[in-house]
Design a protein around this nucleic acid. Structure first.
Lengths: 293, 293
DNA sequence: ATTAATTCATAAATAAAAAGCATTAATTTG
DNA sequence: CAAATTAATGCTTTTTATTTATGAATTAAT
């Protein structure tokens, strides 16, 4: 049994006339007769009662008609769906992100994805950088947000935004925007930073920043979560350096001093496995770039 | 897209190996590769990620796999169903019958049908003979029970049983089995019979029976329904002649006197339209004959 | 590093299937 | 009864699918 045969069968079932059906199907009448005979032969069933003048469906034929219509519709449906998936317009995209992203770009991006590709379902997982990268390698996550770009042959990455860093101080701290000159002013402070992770460019960048100003930060607390760091600063447990975008979710008891020189910027990149063929990655990137350039 | 292509696709999707799949499908590997390429081309979608050493399903491929399995199962289901219908083992059979049949053979027949062909659904309609025959002609009923056989070119019929007639008397009637000789004994009685219908052999038979005994019955009531007639007899409104099988549903206040000569028998036949192709008719007949011979 | 083995893709040849054309047989209509 | 209609049949051509043979890329082994 072939789809073409079912199509022919439905043609005859609709017209109840071989010649007319053949015309509609753009084949000759004998070809059509043959195919129906063949279908009947294979099924071992008479589908049409034809008595030289009238063609009508048998009960078996009527049953096949109903079912064949269903099958044809299902087939059409599959074609459409498969195309959507191929074009990355439907499916599940597993997005990993650091806690910080949820405070900055992620909500807008997800909103935009929802609007442009309503059939894409995003599955978010918040992970610290090295866990996230491993998840991507293990194909548990399709695409992830990381600070600074990654140098690794198996990954592909694209920088989607760049922002200044900022010193985060408790509100009552002596130094403010007005009397701030350089971060060397904080050389004797206690620092709360993200933990040093294997291969994390972001951490190294922060350390180098201090080194260039002639001191090594005295790190007394570590936390992966920007929100936690902000709270610690608020309670006078130390100061920190964070991407400026955290300012939007800043608690009342802290203040930000933006660092506005070129080396004092941090970039946000998307990273994915070079040979991950999930077609949604392409569209996800497009949306991200379209929004953040 | 053809069924064969889907079958091939599922083969590869299962093995994830073209050569092995080809072997299982009893074709050569290039033939398989070609068909998959063709399918991909037609859908405009890549179904397999093949990198010379590994074959894996893309997301689109995975979607097609799931749906193709459904379609193949549906196809198998249809094949079976259509065969059942063709063999008259499934479907609806519309059976018309006179009221009398429900008191005699019909219950057993339906039970037997249920057991032998559990997928056949019977739709009963009780009709008096001429209405029933018209319903059959109009293809509203597939097969019907009638008393005596029908002489009509468009019908086919088969006699399935034959039984004696019986005189039905009120319990207190002077004549009983002991002193009964001949129905001429009832020549002065009031009769309750079925109504005279166009072309009804049964009615004519009853009249002839009386004529042969030298009288014309004095018919004072008519009713199509044997049960009604029995009640009328019970209440002393007259006597009747009915097929002996009514004895099984005889009320207390009546008695039966069987008429045991050959002309005093009545046959029960099944009648259907000669060109009704409902395949269940054949099986229905078989069951009826198997039971009642 | 070279060789052997595996495996999917491609090309040309062959086989199979489908479609077309011409015609027939049966039936209906004027 | 002739003309028209319509599905089936026989034969030919065209199209499609399959096979055979081969190539290219990759991995594994000596």
């Amino acid at each position: 049994m072939e789809i073409t045969q079912l199509k022919y069968f439905l043609g005859v079932a609709e017209e109840l006339h071989f010649s007319k059906a053949a015309e509609k199907l753009f084949i000759t009448q004998p070809a059509l007769s043959r195919q129906i005979q063949q279908l009947e032969g294979e099924l071992g069933v008479i589908l049409f009662e034809r008595n030289k003048r009238n063609v009508s469906l048998t009960m078996a034929g009527e049953c096949l008609r109903v079912e064949a219509i269903k099958i044809m519709n299902q087939l059409e449906f599959v074609k459409k769906r498969v195309t959507l998936i191929h074009n990355g317009e439907e499916g599940e995209l597993r997005v990993g992100h650091p806690g910080s992203a949820i405070h900055s770009v992620l909500p807008q991006i997800l909103l935009e994805i929802q609007q442009k590709f309503p059939k894409i379902r995003t599955i978010l997982s918040e992970e610290i950088e090295n866990v996230l990268l491993n998840a991507i390698k293990d194909n548990k996550v399709d695409i992830g947000f990381v600070r600074e770009s990654i140098i690794d042959a198996q990954f592909d990455s694209r920088t989607i935004s760049s922002e200044f860093l900022a010193v985060v101080l408790p509100e009552n701290h002596a130094i403010s925007q007005d009397n701030f000159i350089d971060i060397s002013q904080f050389k004797d402070e206690k620092f709360i930073l993200t933990p040093r992770q294997e291969g994390s460019v972001y951490y190294d960048k922060l350390i180098k920043l201090c080194e260039r100003s002639g001191f090594l930060p005295n790190i007394i607390h570590e936390s992966n979560y920007g929100a936690t760091i902000l709270r610690l600063v608020e309670h006078n447990l130390g100061i920190s350096i964070l991407p400026i975008s955290y300012q939007t979710s800043m608690p009342k008891g802290v203040k930000f001093i933006a660092l506005k020189t070129i080396p004092e910027t941090t970039s946000l990149s998307l990273v994915w496995l070079r040979d991950n063929t999930n077609p949604m990655i392409k569209n996800f990137l497009e949306v991200c770039e379209g929004m953040l350039v």
